[in-house]
Structure formats: structure tokens, C-alpha cells
């Protein structure tokens, strides 16, 4: 039986290290500062530019949505509704929104770095060709 060892591509390892380093550095910034603005704006500009350049690649025949999609849709609707309920309620300490929950979590730098890394990964996934 052939072994199925995990062998990531060197380019993938390099991208992961670059993303982790970027997230680690950006996690040390404070919101509402020029440094934070700049470090968030750079990936935004790169992803939007990538989407613009590669736009024609995705303007093809749409893939069929797989069966069993509705439980995820139900959870998404529930999350949005609960977010709205909490957003309209006060005080925020007893009615936390996703933003306030993430603010609490991001008091720990490692958690903030992990969130930034997830955000970067989603951005890359939006641009990466399939």
C-alpha cells in the first residue's frame, strides 16, 4: 500500500510562512492608526487587483450547488438574525455582537494573529485559480 505522507508544495510552505509572518506583525498594530490601516489595505488592494486581472477565468459555466446545502443556509440565517438582535439590544456586555466577541478575543495577540491569518487565507482563496 503506497504511503500517503503529507508533502506540501514549497510554494505553499513559503506562502504559509509569509502569511503567518504578516499576520504576526499586523497583530501588533492598534486599530485607528496609519500602520493598521496600511497593513490591512495592502492585502485588500492585492486581492481586488487579483480579482480584476483574473476575472475572465471565473466567468464560465457555474458549478451546480451540491445537495444538502440548506442546513448551512439555515445556520447562516440564524447567525445573521442573532447578530441583528444583539446589535439592536443594549448593553453590549450582555448582548455581544460578533464584532464585540472578536474584540474580546483579539485582546490576546495570538488570537488576533490567527484571525488575521484566516482572513488572509480567505482572500487568497478568492483569487487563487481552481
Amino acid at each position: 500500500m503506497p504511503s500517503r505522507r503529507f508533502r506540501p508544495a514549497p510554494s505553499g510552505v513559503a506562502a504559509a510562512l509569509l502569511g503567518a509572518s504578516y499576520a504576526g506583525y499586523a497583530s501588533g498594530t492598534t486599530p485607528f492608526t496609519w500602520t493598521a490601516n496600511f497593513l490591512v489595505a495592502v492585502p485588500i488592494v492585492l486581492v481586488l487587483a487579483g480579482l480584476a486581472v483574473r476575472w475572465r477565468r471565473w466567468a464560465t459555466v457555474p458549478r451546480a450547488v451540491p445537495e444538502g446545502w440548506w442546513p448551512w443556509a439555515a445556520v447562516l440565517v440564524a447567525v445573521l438574525l442573532w447578530e441583528l438582535v444583539n446589535y439592536l439590544a443594549v448593553p453590549r456586555t450582555t448582548h455581544p455582537t460578533l464584532s464585540s466577541l472578536s474584540d474580546r478575543a483579539m485582546q490576546w495577540r495570538a488570537a488576533k494573529a490567527a484571525l488575521i491569518l484566516c482572513w488572509l487565507w480567505i482572500g487568497v482563496a478568492l483569487v487563487r485559480p481552481k
Partner: peptide
């Protein structure tokens, strides 16, 4: 993509 932009800006910059 637009939601991704907003989330990043909202959580990490503003």
C-alpha cells in the same frame, strides 16, 4: 470579496 474587504477593515483597522 466585498464582504471580505469590509470584515478585514472593520475588525483589524477600524
Amino acid at each position: 470579496a466585498l464582504v471580505w474587504v469590509w470584515v478585514g477593515w472593520h475588525l483589524f483597522a477600524r
